[in-house]
Simulated scan of single mutants.
Amino acid sequence: MSILFPFVITWALLAVRLAVVFGATPVFEQFPVPPLVRACFVFAMAAALTAALPKYWVGRDPGAGQLIRWVFQEALAGGLLALCINIGFAAFSIGARLIDVQIGFGISQVFDPFTRRDTPILSAIFANFAVLAFFVTDGYLVLLRAFVYLVELAPPGAAGLPHFDPQVLLNGAGRLFVAGLALVAPVVLCVLIVEAALTLAARGLPRMNVFAVGMPLKIVTGLTALSLWMPRAREPIGRAFGSSFELFWRSIN
C-alpha cells in the first residue's frame, strides 16, 4: 500500500493534466471519438507516464484541501500546454478564413459541431485538415516530449511552474496572422490576380455583371490553386505547429 498510494495519486493528477490538454485542443474533439475511448486513452497514457517516471511520484498523503489545490494546479499546467497547441491550430483557421472571404465561400455557411456555430466551408475543412496535419508532421511526438518536459519542470504536487512568462505567449499570438497567411499565400496571390483582371475587364466592359462572372471564376481559381499548393505546403504547416511549441518552450524557460 505504501507504494500503491503514491502511484495512484500521481496517476490521477497526471490524468487531470492530460485530460485538459486533450479536452481543450482539437486533437480529439474534431473527430467523433467516443468519450469512453478518450477516457481510456487518457488514463492509459497517464499510467504509462507514471510508471516511467517514478521519481516524480507524490511522496506524501494529501488532505482534501491539498488534493483540490493539486488538481487545480494540474489543470493550469495542462491548460498552458493546450493554449500553445491551439495557437498552431488557430493559424489554419486564419488561413481558411482568408480564402473563404476571397472566393466568396463566406456567404455559404455550414454547421460546425466542434465550435457549435456556423462556419464557412473551407474553415470547416481546414479544421479537420489541421488535425490530420498535426499527426502527419509528427506533432504528436513533440506534444509527448513537451508533456514529459512539463512533468519534469513541474511534477505532480509541486508548487507550480517555477518560470513562466505570459508576455512570450502574447507576443507569439500576435504572429498568428503571419503564420496563417504563409499557409495559403500562393492561393491568396492567385485569387488577387483574378480579381485584378476582373477589375480591368469591368472598366473596359461596364455592362458586364462582375459578380455573376467573377464569383465562379474566383471559386474555380481558388480551389485549383489550393489543391495544387497543399501537397507542397509541408514546410509552412510544420512551421505553424513548430512555432506553437517554440512558444511553449520559451514561455516556461
Rank of each mutant, 00 (worst) to 15 (best):
M215I: 15
G214R: 01
R232E: 03
L169F: 01
V136Y: 08
A197H: 07
A233C: 08
E235A: 12
R117E: 11
A133N: 06
L122W: 10
R239P: 06
L161F: 13
L132D: 04
L228R: 07
P156D: 05
L198N: 08
P236A: 03
A173E: 12
A182T: 10
L198E: 06
L226C: 06
L217D: 03
S123E: 14
G214M: 02
I193W: 08
F147Y: 14
L200N: 05
V151E: 09
M215Y: 15
A202C: 06
A158V: 10
F105R: 01
V184K: 03
L192P: 02
F129W: 09
A159I: 07
P216Y: 13
F111E: 12
F105E: 09
P120K: 10
L143V: 06
L198F: 06
G160I: 07
M208F: 13
Q167F: 09
A179D: 14
A202T: 12
D165V: 02
L169Y: 00
A127P: 01
T199G: 15
A130P: 06
Q109T: 15
T224L: 15
P155L: 11
A127H: 10
L183V: 08
V110I: 14
F134Y: 10
P156Y: 10
T199M: 14
P216W: 11
A179K: 02
M230R: 00
R239F: 07
M208A: 14
L169I: 13
L141S: 12
L153M: 13
R145V: 06
L200R: 09
G204H: 07
E195P: 03
G139R: 04
L228E: 02
L205D: 02
F134R: 10
G172E: 11
